[in-house]
Structure formats: C-alpha cells, structure tokens
Design a protein around this nucleic acid. Sequence first.
DNA 1: TGCCGTTTATTTGTATACGAACGATTATGA
DNA 2: TCATAATCGTTCGTATACAAATAAACGGCA
Lengths: 155, 155
Amino acid sequence: MMTRAPDDARCPDDAEPAEGDYRVDRQIGFFLRQANQRHVALFASIMGDRLTTTQWAALTKLREVQPISQNHLGRETAMDAATIKGVVDRLVARGFVRTAPDPEDGRRLVLSITPEGEEAVARNLSAALAVTEETLAPLTAGERRMLIELIRKIC
Amino acid sequence: MMTRAPDDARCPDDAEPAEGDYRVDRQIGFFLRQANQRHVALFASIMGDRLTTTQWAALTKLREVQPISQNHLGRETAMDAATIKGVVDRLVARGFVRTAPDPEDGRRLVLSITPEGEEAVARNLSAALAVTEETLAPLTAGERRMLIELIRKIC
DNA sequence: TGCCGTTTATTTGTATACGAACGATTATGA
DNA sequence: TCATAATCGTTCGTATACAAATAAACGGCA
C-alpha cells in the first residue's frame, strides 16, 4: 500500500511555491498585457488619421482642460514627463497642438489645441466610441459595468 | 413652460456622438493601459534581477515548453516575431537562454533554458506570485475571480 | 524536378514607457 | 534675504510593440 498519492510526491512538508505549477499565462499581468494589446490593435484598425491611443488620450484630454502645462497634461493622462513630451511633439508636428511659454512661470510650457486638432477630434470621435464598443463586444452590458468597476480598483 | 430640459439642449434630433460628453479617462482602453502600467511598476519594484514582465513570461513559458522555436515561443507569450527576438537576445546575453540551429529545419532557432535560467526562475518565483497578489490586493477573492473571468473574454 | 506559396528569422523605422540625470526656474523656510 | 527644496522641461539609455520589407529554407503540387 502506498503511503503517499503519486500527485503529492513533491515536497509535501515544504511551504515554498510549487515550481511545476506556475503558469505565466494564468497570471493577471499576462491578461492585462494581452487585453491592452487587443485594444491597441482595434484602435489602430478602426481609427483614422494614424492617431495612436496615447495621442488620442492627450488630444482629447487637452481639449477638456486647456490651457495646461505639458507635465500636468501628462499626469492627467497617466504619462511620464519623458513620454508626454514625445506625444506632444508629434501632435505639434501634425498641427493639432500649439505650445507657448507661460508668462507667469518660466519653467512651464502651456499647451492648447488648434482648430485642426479640434477637427481631428470631431472627425474621429465616433470611431473612438466604436473602439470602446468593439473592445467590450464579447461582454454583456452587466459584464461591462462589472469589468470597468473592477479594473478601476486595480489602477 | 419649457418644452425641453436644460441638459437636453444640444442636438436633440441628432444621432451623432455628443462631443462635449466624451471622456477618454472613462473608456476601457484608458483603464487597460493604466492597470497594465501599475502591474509593470509593481513587477519592477518587487522582482529582483532586473527581469522585465516580458522576459519573465518568455523565460517561464520556455521552461514549460522547451525545446521550442523562437517564433513559436513568441506566439505562446503573445509577442510579435520582432519583439520576441529582442527579448530572447537579452535573455541569451544574460546566460538564461541558449539557442541552437534546428538540424531538421534550417530556418528554425531552437531555444532552451540554461541552468542559470532555471535558477533565476526558482529564485524569483515567490516574488512573481507576490506581484500577482499585490496587483489584485484591492479586490476580494470573489472579485478577483470575476475580473480574471471577464478580462479573459476580451483578450 | 522545378515552381510557388508559406514559414522563419532578421532588420529598419516609428511609437510608447520609464529610470536617471541635468539645467533652469520657482517656492519654501529659517 | 538666502540657502534649500521642489518643479518643469529636456535628454539619454534601455525595453517593449508592431508594421513592413527582406533573405533563407521548407512545403506542396503540377
């Protein structure tokens, strides 16, 4: 008679994590990365004007809170100071955003949206909503609310 | 007597999206990006050896399915052919992964994990589990199951 | 056998993402 | 007031992420 079952053969008195059982593709981080990848891919395929997710976030947020300094816009859109700089530079190069030195604070760079930027937002707004819809397409209305509620808690 | 409520004053007979109401920071894509950012930050602060999330994914998945070709490992870990190449190159440079030409297929590069790679996995496994735990810390056990179930559906 | 489509790995270019360091400027407190 | 701390924008280096193009090698099929 066996004193131990075959699938209990490894380290029965050991509290260390079972190495053989670990699966990266079952961890929340793996799912978060993949879900974000799918959303970015949907965004790229649905949105026009070759606008990226971060450029869209910066542009629409700027429209909401302008005028605002560059770093501040970065904080509002969850972007590093180095990251928001690159995003803003590309939006400026495309004529969607304008920069000006702040007369009251020599350090700040004040951003505002141009008419071309406003047009770009208006032109792509329905597509942006379609991206959200398509991303959540596999879920029911109740599941969508639940997912958003839960994911907000881990941000 | 008013024929229309004040908050219904814009485009009542228009099916177009209401521009003024759009908020990027309420879209699922914004949350997915932020949640992923938080997870990556937690990973960087908890894990040792300066291993990144993708390097960890590639290394642990390789341990599971070796030997395997480079592109195949990329598909198993949701990475582009160009992306997995960079990740594998860095793991090879660190001595965690070994590459060899496939004698049966001249195109393939067969990957396997080195003893140093195995040690790196064993050394960091509990930290990896702690990252998952910390990422889900704001949620109850039931909420965690629900979040994982929902997020899997949109991957 | 030889043609052709596919797969594999690679390279280039562009775009986040962030740590770290830097100079310039502003705010704070002793 | 003046030294110090904090903020702002910038730059550098590293690491994903992916589109697109390429060369080499494999497969099937006439």
